[in-house]
Simulated assay, not measured.
Amino acid sequence: MEVRFLGPDDADELIKIRLEGLQTDPDAFGSTYEEEIQMPKEEWLRRLSQGESGDSGYFGAFVEGQLAGIIGFFRHRGLKARHKASIVSMYVREAYRGTGVAQALMQTELAYLEKRGDIDTVQLAVVTTNPAAIRLYEKMGFLPYGVEKRALKIGDQYFDESHMYILL
């Protein structure tokens, strides 16, 4: 398995796996397939063009040359919050779940954020209906700091999110 920072050349594969995740696990993401299918490729390229020194980006895990999973991050912008980053868009294709892909993605991203030297707190939100993800995040050292009731709504169904953090 190879885990690496994704760049503009990876746009088509990133779009494909992101849309797959939104269809496969719609309750796990704040965005929807219908929203992101309409996002122009230029926006994806912009997101991937910030390079490793940017304040946001994606890592991908490749197994035998195939993109098996992704994880993204963004750094908070305000002067008082620039020491924090949020993890977003974590998704592992079903065929690779339970194989260590998710842990490798998280380890790589946390190591990258810590190495930067200007981020010391990493946050994420996970739907409470995803106990496997919560267990993984706890195993990686994340601690809960609150539950947002009715954080997401799909049709008439609400989903709560557990907010978690880790100090680097």
Rank of each mutant, 00 (worst) to 15 (best):
L6K: 02
L6P: 02
D10K: 01
D10N: 06
L14P: 02
K16W: 09
K16H: 13
I17K: 00
E20R: 07
E20V: 06
T24D: 15
P26A: 08
D27C: 12
A28T: 00
A28L: 09
G30M: 05
E35D: 13
E35W: 07
E35L: 07
Q38P: 03
M39A: 14
K41P: 06
K41E: 12
E43L: 14
W44R: 02
L45C: 10
L48Q: 03
L48S: 05
G51K: 04
G51S: 10
G51A: 11
E52Y: 11
E52R: 15
S53G: 14
G54W: 05
G54N: 05
G54S: 11
D55Y: 12
Y58A: 07
G60C: 11
A61S: 13
F62K: 02
E64W: 07
G65T: 07
Q66H: 14
Q66Y: 12
Q66L: 13
L67R: 04
I70N: 09
I71F: 10
I71W: 07
G72V: 03
G72F: 10
F74R: 08
R77M: 14
K80T: 11
H83R: 07
K84G: 05
A85G: 09
S86Y: 13
I87E: 06
V88G: 08
V88M: 13
M90A: 11
V92L: 07
E94L: 13
Y96W: 15
R97I: 10
R97S: 11
A102P: 03
Q103N: 12
A104Y: 06
A104T: 03
T108N: 12
T108V: 09
T108L: 09
A111Q: 10
Y112G: 07
L113D: 03
K115V: 05
R116G: 11
R116T: 04
G117P: 03
D120V: 07
T121P: 00
V122Y: 06
Q123V: 14
Q123L: 15
L124P: 01
T129L: 12
T129I: 10
N130R: 01
P131H: 04
I134A: 05
L136E: 01
L136D: 03
M140A: 09
Y145Q: 00
V147E: 09
E148G: 07
L152I: 06
K153P: 02
I154D: 01
I154W: 03
I154F: 10
I154E: 01
G155Y: 05
D156G: 05
D156S: 13
Q157C: 08
Q157G: 03
Y158E: 02
Y158C: 04
Y158P: 01
D160W: 04
E161L: 10
H163Y: 14
Y165L: 11
I166E: 02
I166A: 05
